[in-house]
Design a protein around this nucleic acid. Structure first.
Lengths: 155, 155
DNA sequence: ATAATTCCTATCAATTTAGTAGGAGTTAAA
DNA sequence: TTTAACTCCTACTAAATTGATAGGAATTAT
């Protein structure tokens, strides 16, 4: 499972991608309220996203956060890695956090490893494609579908 | 990441599938030694696998564990669910452990959910296909490849 | 009987998670 | 130039989870 931190981070980023088209900074407390995230907790999360180069911040009155990169350039894989570490389910198939399995006898002929390697490759591919822009597109698509459904019900 | 418990469980099951063709029980201490798993810890793991219907046990002298189902019928997805719970990365896309996201406004139009739903579907598909028999087949395949490689090196 | 095994309950230390608290530093505007 | 509204930063904490260990009861082949 993804941690709450990661989930909050993704929600905050999607919120920023949707609400701040002009690049105007949006305040922590605003995001916290709209996305139901504890304010102080979100504070730390946004700071980390800024330090990772995904967000810009402006201090002082009228300060806040805005996207540093375009919504096409920010993807869920990177956010997950930032907060939860490796996406791989075994250390020995991780890409950016590789570590040998302590108890493993021969990594090269490990059938379990082969399975988890495939899972990792596919998962990373999907999560890399899941940019903020893509998430918004999907959300729009789903809204249309639900609109059609309610229309049909009224008939 | 998968827990150590799950990793140990998979290794123990693969060991049993490979070494106990005749269905003769194999002792905890034997598996523990060969697979580098703390004995007492493995004890609890095997018990849980038995209670889940994957293993048979025989008590007393010459007792031990054997597979209850065929290696084609035991898959990694089920083992992971047994020890680590849901395979899904978000509670709201879990199949056997579904739970609404506390902070979610509208599940039906959530773009994030759509992404993680796809990831879950693909992951479960791969892990369901990863039966003990399949893991052994892959392992054999890898052994052949590494044999060819060493042959070529010698030339 | 006894030796070797599984079965079962309880306990524990370390780590991770999901926050909270308090205040220093910065900036726009009155 | 004061002040209100922000971000930035460090430290702390309670609860849950993980990865075990300890000790002995129950069972079975010899």
């Amino acid at each position: 499972m993804v941690s709450r931190k990661t989930k909050y981070a993704i929600n905050a980023l999607v919120y920023l991608a949707r609400e701040s088209k002009d690049g105007q900074p949006i305040q922590i407390s605003c995001i916290a309220e709209k996305e139901h995230i504890p304010r102080k907790f979100l504070e730390a999360i946004l700071l980390q996203l800024r330090n990772a180069g995904m967000l810009n911040s402006r201090k002082g009155k009228l300060g806040g956060y805005s996207l540093q990169k375009s919504p096409e350039e920010i993807n869920i894989a990177d956010v997950m890695r930032l907060f939860d570490g490796p996406i791989a389910l075994l250390p020995c198939v991780a890409y950016k956090y590789y570590k040998r399995c302590d108890e493993c006898v021969d990594e090269g002929t490990c059938g379990i490893r082969a399975v988890f390697s495939e899972v990792r490759t596919e998962t990373v591919r999907m999560l890399k494609n899941a940019t903020l822009a893509e998430v918004l597109r999907r959300s729009e698509g789903l809204k249309e579908i639900s609109l059609v459904k309610t229309k049909n019900k009224k008939k």
